[in-house]
Design a protein around this nucleic acid. Structure first.
Lengths: 224, 224
DNA sequence: CCTGAATTTAGCGTATAAGAAACTTAATTT
DNA sequence: AAATTAAGTTTCTTATACGCTAAATTCAGG
């Protein structure tokens, strides 16, 4: 294991001598002064954001390389893991439009996010802005009936047992049309983080959030 | 689809506002002064290497995020497409163990594959070899009760309303334990092709296939 | 040892980053 | 309405980045 050392300086000197470049050459490549480069290499000074970009561009390396951060990246594999959510269990997030019950949350690196939801909104006005997010969405109607509104299609009525698959970057909204609020099972092919972000409006306000439960985690039930 | 950010300031404000953090909170998280953060967000100043590292660490984001380099965006886009499967509709594939009803098959490039299934097998002997395939699998029990057998866990009993998420490369088998065969909604994060292949033995024979409906497409019902 | 050229480092001035505190705005409370 | 609280911005001061220039180091061939 080569000591993936802390500093920018070490990296810079490393790449420079590897390529048999002089400070002057690097200076010409990047537009940074020779003296600056020297000081950086000797860890006598840091660099600002702009210069970092400039340096990376000049050297023709990805900006990431400048930071010793090795990609611990992406083992999407769960490696034989399993998680069970019993009926009613999960992480509850409530908004004016939906009660969300995020399922199987003990597994963090899921490539799909399963959610049970109860739909409260009954009109598109009440619902507000369409929801958009990355990835795709599959929804199965567990109970009741709903109307699916999307940007590019006419509204569609879905009853218990029906299901729909669509591109979730297309704005969408579910409205209850049955007497009691419809219950759906929704599976999204994106990260939970992205999903929760999509609840946040452009202005930064959580749209229709019932309680401002600032990162408050609550494990609860929708229907025991 | 998240907004393409132009600079560091935009990114910082974006993530801060999305998480409902105040400048003070971010200051405490990162150790940077409130005034500094304010100026950065308003693009009135840049940041040095050290501060960038500090900022990223405090926010708990990868340093890469701070630079405009967007990840490759590997999700195959459906570009605003939508498909609905009514109750009972789908592409039926029957084996000795399951009746599979592949849903929303008009969309071909799905990143998830939703399937309604009826479980016939009641003993592990009857079931035969475990099923393995790529990706992850989420299953929600719609009706009845089942026993999920997997390679690395003790069998688990799941009743209507329960659900399970697991690494599908781990061998698995569902057995009905309720009086009438259990019905499940299963969503897999792999391609339909891969899935159907996993039904095929190493010799190329489809194991336990009831009818050799060689690429015969049949739109039918499981339970009208 | 020189001598000189190439390369790197150090000194210094200006520009800018960074933090503390004062100030502005907006929302609540008394 | 005044007072309080909270968020964010601006001001001011110190510290640091950064480039110019010069000094120091390394390294040829004599």
């Amino acid at each position: 294991m080569t000591d993936q050392k802390t500093g920018l300086g070490d990296f810079l000197r490393d790449i420079r001598v590897r390529n048999h470049w002089t400070l002057l050459e690097v200076s010409e490549m990047t537009g940074l002064a020779v003296s600056t480069l020297s000081k950086v290499e000797n860890n006598q000074m840091s660099l600002t954001y702009d210069r970092l970009v400039q340096l990376a561009a000049g050297l023709g390396v990805d900006i990431v390389e400048l930071f010793g951060t090795r990609p611990v990246e992406s083992t999407p594999s769960l490696l034989g893991r399993r998680a069970i959510s019993r009926q009613g269990e999960g992480r509850l997030i409530q908004t004016g439009n939906y009660d969300y019950l995020y399922l199987c949350t003990e597994i963090s690196k899921k490539s799909m996010v399963p959610i049970l939801a109860v739909l409260h909104a009954r009109t598109i006005e009440e619902f507000g802005e369409f929801v958009h997010h990355d990835g795709q969405e599959y929804t199965y109607v567990v109970e009741g009936a709903l109307e699916l509104h999307t940007e590019h299609y006419e509204p569609a009525m879905l009853k218990a047992g029906d299901s729909v698959y669509f591109d979730a970057s297309m704005g969408h909204a579910y409205l209850s049309v049955s007497e009691s609020p419809a219950r759906i099972l929704c599976v999204c092919s994106t990260s939970e983080k992205e999903l929760i972000n999509s609840l946040v409006g452009a202005d930064g306000e959580i749209s229709n959030l019932k309680k401002k439960s600032k990162s408050r985690r609550k494990t609860s039930t929708i229907r025991k």
